[in-house]
Amino acid sequence: MKKPVLFLLAAVFLLPLVVRPAIASEIWIFAIFGLGANLLMGYTGLLSFGQSTFFGSAAYVAGWLMKVQGVNAFLALAAGIGVGAASAAVVGYLCVQRSGLYFIMLTFALNQLFYFTAYQWTSITGGEDGMPGVPRPEFFGVDFKDPVIYYALVSGLFLLSLYLMKRIVESPLGKILQAIRENEVRAEAVGYAVPRFKLLAFVIGGAFSGLAGVLYAMLFGIVPLESISFVFSGNVIFATLIGGSGSLYGPVIGSFVFIWLSESMSTVWARWPLLLGVAFVLVVMFLRGGLVEAWTRFWTWRSSKLKT
């Protein structure tokens, strides 16, 4: 096994010793969400500002299924993935023809549309109050109510997602998506049906987002309204950018840094968003490519030092 894998496994095991299982779980859930966003943003070059549409829809549907219909965890997860993919298919179908700022705005507007629908549909979603009382149903006799066991489930699914994503981006499909990112016209000219591939990226990304959404709802026992808000969409983009978009581990590192930082800063200073803003600006100014890039740069710098 090579370094990154060892590193990740160490992180998965050590994280709950450093932070509480709830935060640790949230970090990996957010990382799954980030993986999906990164496929669109980093690999396909589609800056979707509406990822929480898929995250939130999946959370609501799966939460409702578990709460009202009493389905088990496995079915709920499957349903969430399905809803995430389906909603992404709809949004993607409407958006893939657009590009640039229009694309961003359209995904944003559709996100708002879903948000206000959830806001108004209080009988199901609870509106502003969120949908509370989402259970963590047991599955094959395993009781997920214990935070540590739930963490094991989340981190296991995270590793699985990461592995799947790795396979996807290294597959021919991944290469095509990257070709679209690099030069859409050329990809089209070579004979790829660009919109169809973009749509596919949407659906896959949506499935990952959906998985993350269900895990999130089960983690906190509630589907809060903000889980479908554009703030959430923004957060996942920013986390990915901080980590480094377009690299497999970028969103993972980004979610870790983003959640951990905002959690720890918020207990230190009430005006912590100011620091977050400064961090954003600094990343843009000096660290395009995010932390992954910083890491690579650091190693190149060190090896060049060693040589001389």
Binding site: L47, L276, G277, A279, F280, V284, M285, R288
Partner: peptide
């Protein structure tokens, strides 16, 4: 730069400005 970094930058700026107002 790409729209993504522009977005990140202006969003960060918005955070800084509105927190400074507070």
């Amino acid at each position: 730069a790409g729209h993504d970094y522009q977005l990140l930058f202006t969003f960060g700026l918005a955070l800084i400005l509105s927190e400074s107002i507070i």
